[in-house]
């Protein structure tokens, strides 16, 4: 299989969310000795198309998640190879994300993760019901460009404020941009919490993260 053919096939596999085929295809490209950095664009271009179609309403949430997952599987294999070759993975930024303590909702968060990955971010998912201390610890350890916090209900939304206060106490607040999100989160709420910005939904969230980092 020629390199161009593999890139094209990987593109289609991701676009159509053919989950079982993506990892084997990525492995095949490595076996054939192609430079993973040259294979990668097949995935990212497809993810961009998926994002556009979701945005215009011709692909739907489940399609998007399948594409995201297919991309992730292939990406894991390629990045492992890139690191093995002691090269650098060309991420556009690093994001740490999680649902705050007491909040067990993760659909919106999964969506944001899928879309951020599609845009070339390296995303660390802390999961749901994440204690304040864990957010602080991970920000210190991973040095992300952006910390994303999610909360669906008004009671757990109060946690945004306390996590940000803990970051301040630890002297980390000025080292990381903070974005919050969730069904009821508004700009006003972002201001009150001390976050840098908010995402009204997943698409908006990605736009705002890119804006925070001065990316287009």
């Amino acid at each position: 299989m020629k390199k161009e053919a593999i890139i094209k096939e990987l593109h289609d596999v991701v676009l159509e969310g053919r989950l079982e085929e993506s990892a084997p295809l990525a492995e095949k490209s490595i076996e054939l000795g192609y430079d993973p950095l040259e294979i990668l664009p097949g995935i990212t271009t497809a993810l961009r198309v998926v994002g556009e179609r979701f945005n215009e309403g011709s692909m739907f949430l489940t399609d998007l998640m399948y594409s995201g997952e297919a991309a992730k599987e292939a990406m894991n294999i390629l990045t492992k190879e890139i690191k093995r070759q002691k090269k650098e993975v060309p991420y556009v930024g690093r994001v740490v994300i999680g649902s705050v303590e007491g909040d067990i909702h993760d659909i919106g968060k999964s969506l944001v993760i899928a879309m951020l990955s599609a845009e070339g971010f390296e995303v660390f998912d802390l999961g749901i019901d994440v204690p304040d201390a864990v957010f602080v610890e991970k920000v210190r350890e991973l040095k992300p460009d952006v910390l994303g916090m999610s909360a669906l209900v008004t009671t757990t939304m109060l946690k945004f404020r306390s996590v940000i206060a803990s970051l301040e106490e630890a002297g980390l607040r000025n080292k990381v941009k903070v974005i919050i999100g969730g069904a009821l989160v508004t700009k006003n709420y972002a201001d009150i919490s001390g976050a840098d910005t908010f995402g009204s939904d997943a698409v908006d969230g990605v736009v705002k993260v890119k804006a925070l980092l001065g990316l287009k």
Partner: peptide, 16 residues
């Protein structure tokens, strides 16, 4: 218990 059905082959097959 917990989790969601969004990324499930059944959902993918049936939602449309």
């Amino acid at each position: 218990i917990g989790g969601n059905y969004l990324m499930n082959p059944h959902t993918r097959k049936w939602f449309r």
